[in-house]
């Protein structure tokens, strides 16, 4: 059984050797058409393309290679950065208002009237109390 399989495989190798010679001597016109077909196929290669400009957003890649080739993209990025800064400034303003509101609420809700903090006598008492507490 193995002997027969060996013979089959050996015969097949010999046939394939002849076939290889046939591909080597392929007509030039056909070889050229195959080459052209290969080139077209390669142009359509599906790849998970990584755009260096996107990777470099905020980094150096955008401001070097991509800047000259894609001025519009660079302009959009700069606008996006400015917009981000404006939003950040606006948001921080809200936080400051929140803090002031909390302080005002605590002052008004306290038993001590707000005017007491402007009284020089009260300030002197606070200072004296702080020193004696040490």
């Amino acid at each position: 059984m193995n002997r027969m399989r060996d013979r089959e495989e050996q015969f097949a190798r010999q046939v394939c050797h002849v076939l290889d010679r046939g591909t080597e001597g392929l007509d030039h016109g056909i070889a050229e058409r195959l080459r052209a077909a290969r080139e077209r196929a390669l142009q359509h290669q599906h790849v998970l393309a990584v755009n260096p400009a996107i990777v470099g957003a905020g980094g150096t890649a955008l401001l070097t290679g991509g800047e000259e080739k894609h001025p519009l993209r660079t302009l959009l990025l700069i606008l996006a950065i400015i917009l981000g800064m404006a939003v950040s400034y606006y948001w921080n303003g809200f936080e400051q208002v929140d803090q002031n509101e909390t302080i005002d609420t605590e002052l008004l809700a306290d038993d001590l009237p707000p005017k007491a903090y402007l009284d020089p006598g009260f300030q002197a008492w606070l200072s004296h109390y702080a020193q004696s507490a040490r």
Binding site: A37, R40, A41, H46
Partner: peptide, 8 residues
Amino acid sequence: MMRLSEKY
């Protein structure tokens, strides 16, 4: 070849 290139 085109299908291999495009799909795979």
